[in-house]
């Protein structure tokens, strides 16, 4: 990356400069990225390393429920699980955060009070993001005032795909401001961005606008998170840090269901962004069913026999 810090602070002064910068980013070698992700996915993680990997993955989970059928009772049950994922084993760590709709934030804040678990709320007309800016900002402020300390916003894909990058940028900046102290995660919805080049551009755009995390997907669009897309985003945060000194986190979300998948992502993080990112403050998994599989594998390592879905919660 050749851009200096001075260049970057100034890059959004007009639509033309922003566009020039984003289109000046080097293109992604699609075949190379996919081959690299596939090669790293063949790494084998065993015994003690696997046990540590599983515990780290549990600590990185943003335990998520984003359904029209969510009720306060379901959110409280989710929070109980977030505190003590395995009630029979006190050595099992808590997850990083619970992720809910804005209307459930107050319930979740109550339910995780006294723990280190963050409450993340999706906002800005999730999942489509197709609402006027005023509505998106009000959505964000409501979630923050109810106590959410992390906000997952969606970018305006309609504007991004039609090339109106400055609109997207300014929207993220406005939401960033509405967040106040809360961390901002920017959802790129890579399943709708069509190319890896767009993923790289959207990553840089979000980071320039002040994102604390960049997140792959809402989980409502297929394909959701994939290894190559995450690879491209991890390269972006790595390059962004070397250009600006600011560290941005990455959150793949949607479609990560097994321990094997989670460990593959951890390998990818270690080999791409580096060990610094192997931390719940820098890397998260947006998932719901993943946690159960992590618990089953954890049990298998501890007891030496296979467990089954009868021994974890139905959620």
């Amino acid at each position: 990356m050749t851009s200096s810090v001075a260049d970057l602070s100034d890059v959004a002064r007009s639509a033309a400069t922003l566009r020039g910068f984003l289109h000046g980013l080097p293109g992604v070698d699609q075949v190379g990225a996919e081959a690299r992700a596939a090669a790293l996915a063949t790494r084998s993680i065993k015994t003690t390393a696997k046990a540590r990997g599983i515990d780290l993955a549990i600590r990185m989970v943003d335990l998520t429920t984003l359904e029209g059928a969510d009720t306060p009772g379901k959110v409280r049950a989710l929070c109980a699980k977030a505190r003590r994922p395995d009630p029979t084993d006190p050595s099992c760590p808590s997850v990083a955060a619970v992720c809910v709709y804005p209307s459930m934030v107050a319930t979740a804040v109550d339910a995780v009070a006294g723990s280190a678990i963050h409450v993340a709320s999706v906002a800005t007309a999730f999942p489509s993001g197709q609402a006027p800016l005023a509505v998106k900002l009000a959505d964000t402020r409501a979630a923050v005032s109810d106590g959410a300390d992390e906000i997952d916003m969606v970018i305006n894909r309609g504007a991004f795909l039609s090339g109106r990058y400055l609109d997207v940028y300014e929207e993220i900046v406005a939401v960033r401001e509405a967040c106040g102290e809360a961390h901002l995660k920017v959802i790129l919805e890579t399943g709708e961005l069509a190319t890896y080049d767009n993923v790289r551009r959207a990553s840089w755009l979000a980071m320039l606008a002040g994102a604390d995390f960049i997140k792959t997907s809402t989980g409502k669009v297929s394909p959701a998170a994939t290894l190559p897309v995450t690879l491209v985003m991890l390269e972006a945060v790595r390059d962004f840090r070397s250009a600006t000194g600011r560290t941005v986190g990455v959150k793949p979300a949607g479609g990560i269901r097994t321990t094997k998948d989670a460990l593959r992502y951890l390998v990818l993080v270690n080999e791409t962004a580096g060990e610094d990112w192997l931390d719940p403050d820098r890397f998260r998994f947006g998932a719901s069913s993943l946690l159960n599989d992590l618990l089953l594998q954890r049990d298998k390592l501890a007891t030496g026999r296979y467990s089954g879905p009868d021994y974890v919660t139905l959620d």
């Binding site: 026999r305 296979y306 009868d310």
Partner: peptide, 9 residues
């Protein structure tokens, strides 16, 4: 033995 110890059998 793996079958006998498996909790989902």
């Amino acid at each position: 033995p793996w079958l006998a110890g498996h909790l989902d059998v």
